[in-house]
């Protein structure tokens, strides 16, 4: 089994304050891992750290270079560009050409020429998720991917994830919705909540 991401003893901070510590897990290709945990525990911070957007406080994230694609709370869509233009742009950035598969998977074909600003919240999210398919990257790191999706769209998404896993990809996501992905492992991050540092430890980090 090929390793996609390996996280060892990772600590992450939000706004200069350590929120999670000592997290270790591995994700192999063809696997999905769902992060659970109460609001504010640091799931987003963890995902951003794994995606390389911020440095960890300690510990390591190992992954094949340029294999991760990240999708956050926002979809990175431009309101004045059409659905097609938005998707084409991201395909070009990642060096791909064919976007028809992604359009079909999320049933965007009929909306192709609509400006992204005129889409409903759920349609926007579908477009944002379609972006993952056109990047051609193997490891999906997703933060609340199903927000504002209806039941059909969630099924669409679950289908896309399943197909992605079948092609040797993997997915790491923070979500509260049951996707019906039986093969997905679940990791509850609540036990990794960072403990308050010792009061005597008044050194580099002022604590």
């Amino acid at each position: 089994m090929v390793m996609a991401i390996s996280v060892s003893d990772l600590s992450v901070a939000r706004g200069g304050i350590k929120v999670l510590e000592g997290i270790s897990f591995t994700l192999a290709s063809g696997q999905a891992l769902v992060l659970r945990g109460p609001n504010g525990i640091g799931k987003t911070t963890l995902l951003r750290t794994i995606a390389g957007l911020q440095p960890p406080i300690s510990g390591k994230v190992e992954a094949t270079p340029e294999s991760i694609v990240y999708a956050g709370h926002t979809d990175g869509l431009k309101a004045t560009l059409s659905v097609l233009e938005n998707l084409n742009f991201w395909a070009q950035v990642f060096g791909n050409k064919d976007i028809s598969g992604a359009m079909k998977q999320y049933e965007l074909t009929t909306l192709a020429d609509r400006p992204a600003g005129a889409l409903s919240a759920g349609q926007k999210r579908r477009l944002g998720l379609a972006r993952l398919l056109v990047t051609g990257r193997l490891v999906w790191v997703l933060d609340e991917p199903t927000v504002s999706l209806d039941r059909d769209a969630v099924a669409m998404f679950a289908g896309a994830v399943r197909a992605h896993l079948g092609q040797g990809g993997s997915a790491l996501m923070a979500t509260h919705i049951d996707l019906g992905l039986d093969e997905a492992a679940i990791l509850d991050v609540a036990p990794y909540r960072a403990k308050a540092p010792e009061p005597d430890d008044f050194d580099g980090v002022f604590l």
Binding site: G16, I17, K18, K195, A196, P197, P199, F206, L207
Partner: peptide, 9 residues
């Protein structure tokens, strides 16, 4: 500020 943050944690 660090102590306040610790207190919140």
């Amino acid at each position: 500020r660090a102590l306040l943050a610790r207190e919140r944690m």
